[in-house]
Design a protein around this nucleic acid. Structure first.
Lengths: 304, 304
DNA sequence: CATCACGATATCTTCGAGGTATGATGCGTG
DNA sequence: CACGCATCATACCTCGAAGATATCGTGATG
C-alpha cells in the first residue's frame, strides 16, 4: 500500500464520485478506479458500496477514512516540521555567554532570534570563556561568546564586537580627577582580576597589554566576572574591563577610557563541524543584528 | 512522496546503515540509496549526514522520523481497524426485542456476540413488534425479534424459535384444576390482550387461532407486554402467551399448555439490503447459538 | 424504449522501482 | 605509505505498473 492509494481513496470518499475525484486528482477515471480496486483487493474487503448512486462508504471504508486522513495529515505535518528543522526554525540550542553580555546585547540577539525561530528552545548559560570552550568541545554547548583570541582547532569563531578597554576605579580614587588616562598611570596600583582559568585568552591579553606598557600588574584579588566590579568599588584595587561594562551603570564605580588601549574582541564561537541548522541560524542572526551595547536601552526608552 | 519513501527512510534511520536497511527491506542497497535521495530531493533538504560512519540523522531527519513513524503507525492501525469493521467486529448496532425476550435468551445472545465482537457497541431497545418494524424501516433499528409472520417486502426474517402457546390463568381460577386444556375451554372467559397496534401480526395470529376454535375472544383489558400477566394474576381474565413466559416464574400465575395450540414463531428480522457487517455478524451469532429459553438459568446454576 | 450517467474493463505507453556492476571515499592496518 | 575493506553513490538495464484512451455494462430517467 502506498500513500497514493490513501490519497485516491480519500478523494473518492469525499467526492462520492469517481469522475469528480479523478478530476480533482488530475488523473483519468479508469486508473483511479483501478487504484481503489487494487487497494480493496490488497485489504481483502470493499471500501465502497457502488451499487447505488451516489456511491457510499462501507463500514470498513468509513473506518479506514478516518485513519487515512490522520496518516496523510501526519505526513503533511511531518514534512512541515522537518522543513522548519532544516531551516533552523525548530529544535533546541544551548548558548554560552559571559555574564557581562547579559546587560548589553544578548537580549537583543535573543529577541531577534526568537522572532525568526519561535520554535527553537534556547538554553542560555552564563559561563566564563574557559567553561564555554569546554562545553563547546564536549558538545554540550552549541555557540558561545568569548573575549580575546581563540586557539582551538576544532572551533570556529568570528569577531562580533570590538571594544576599547576601560579602567575601572573606586569613586574615591585620586585618579578619578583625570578624565583621560593611559595604562602606565596605574602601573603601581593593586589590581583585581578574574582567575586566569576562567578565560585564559582574555587574561593573557590583559597581562600582555600591561607588559607592553612596561609593568606586570600586582593582582591582589581574584573574583569572577561581575564581582570584579564590586571589589573595585570596595577599594581593593583597579581593574581593566571592556567598554560594554558601562551599560551596567553602577554609581559606585568610575570608568575612564584608556588612551593607549588596544581593542578587545568579542568572538562568537561554535564547533567547526556544526550540523545544527538552528545553530547556523543563530550565527546568522548574530551577524545580521550585530552585538550593539546601547541598543537595548535606546529601545526601552522609545517604548516608554 | 509515497509510503515507500517513509518506510525506507525509517529503516535506514533505525539501522543507521544503508546496507543493513536494504537487507531488512528485502531490496538491494543502490535502489534504497536512490529512494532516500529522491525523498531528500523532493523535500529540499538532507535527512542524513553521510559524511561519517555510522551515518547519522540531521535535525530535519530526526524530526521527520517521529512523524513518519506516526504516519506508518496510523496506516497500520487504520488497516487493522478497517478489517475489524469489515468483519463486523467493530461498529454499533441497534437491536430491538420484545420485553418478554429479556428473560429468556437475549442475554445469552448478547454474551455470545460480545465475545465475538467486543468492540461493537450494542444499543438494545425493548419494543413491541410494530415499533421494531417501524424502526427497521426507518433505519433506526438494525435487527429485531418479532413474533408471528411478517409481510414487509423490504425486510427479511428468519424463524429462530418455535414455541407452543400457553394459557395464563389466575391461581384461583376453576380451570386450574385441569392439567390439560384446549382453547375452546376458555371460549367464554374474559381475555386480557396487548393492544393490537403493538404487534398486529401476533395479535391477529392469536385472534385467528380463537376463530378457528369457534369463538371470538372477549377482550376486557389491554395491557402492554408483561403487564398482561399482572392483570391475569389480578383476576381480570385469562390470556394466551408464548411458552417462554414460563421463564418468568411468577407464582401468582398458572400456565397450562394448550393441547390444540399451533406453534408461535419468533422471528429475527433485519433490513433486506443490510450493509453492516456487524449486523450480519449478529445474525450469524443468533443462528449459531440459537434462542434457547432455558440456557440462561442452567449456566447460572453451573457457575454457582 | 432510447438516452444518460457512471463505474468497470481492455489495451497501450511510458516512467520509475529495483536489479547488477562498478566507482568514489574514508578508515584501519601491516 | 600502500593496501584492503567497508560503505555509499553512480551507471545502466529490465520489467512491472501507473496512467491515458477507447469502449462496455448497467441502472436510472424521461
Amino acid at each position: 500500500m502506498e500513500l497514493r492509494h490513501l490519497r485516491y481513496f480519500a478523494a473518492v470518499a469525499e467526492e462520492r464520485h469517481f469522475g469528480r475525484a479523478a478530476a480533482r486528482l488530475g488523473i483519468a477515471q479508469p486508473p483511479l478506479s483501478k487504484q481503489v480496486q487494487d487497494l480493496e483487493r490488497e485489504l481483502g474487503f470493499e471500501l465502497f458500496d457502488r451499487s447505488r448512486r451516489p456511491i457510499e462508504l462501507t463500514a470498513a471504508g468509513e473506518t479506514l477514512l478516518e485513519h487515512a486522513r490522520a496518516a496523510l495529515h501526519a505526513v503533511e505535518a511531518g514534512v512541515h516540521e522537518a522543513r522548519r528543522a532544516a531551516e533552523g526554525r525548530r529544535g533546541r540550542i544551548s548558548v554560552g555567554y559571559p555574564s557581562s553580555l547579559a546587560y548589553c546585547g544578548l537580549t537583543d540577539i535573543l529577541r531577534a532570534f526568537r522572532k525568526q525561530a519561535p520554535d527553537v528552545t534556547i538554553r542560555t548559560q552564563p559561563l566564563p570563556s574557559g567553561g564555554q570552550i569546554e562545553g563547546l568541545l564536549r558538545g554540550e554547548l552549541h555557540v558561545g561568546f568569548v573575549r580575546g583570541p581563540l586557539h582551538e582547532p576544532s572551533l570556529v569563531s568570528e569577531v562580533v564586537r570590538r571594544e576599547r578597554l576601560m579602567l575601572a576605579l573606586p569613586p574615591d580614587h585620586p585618579l578619578t580627577a583625570r578624565k583621560r588616562l593611559a595604562l602606565r598611570d596605574v602601573s603601581r596600583e593593586p589590581f583585581v582580576f578574574f582567575p586566569r582559568d576562567r578565560g585564559p585568552a582574555f587574561f593573557d591579553f590583559l597581562v600582555g597589554f600591561c607588559r607592553n606598557a612596561g609593568f606586570s600588574p600586582k593582582v591582589v584579588q581574584e573574583a569572577s566576572q561581575v564581582d570584579v566590579l564590586s571589589l573595585v568599588a570596595a577599594g581593593f584595587g583597579v581593574s581593566i574591563v571592556p567598554d560594554s561594562v558601562r551599560e551596567i551603570r553602577r554609581d559606585d564605580i568610575v570608568l575612564r577610557p584608556l588612551l593607549d588601549s588596544p581593542v578587545s574582541e568579542l568572538r562568537l564561537v561554535w564547533h567547526r563541524d556544526n550540523r545544527s541548522p538552528a545553530v547556523a541560524r543563530f550565527i546568522e542572526v548574530v551577524r545580521c543584528v550585530g552585538v550593539h551595547p546601547r541598543r537595548n536601552r535606546r529601545r526601552r526608552a522609545k517604548r516608554t
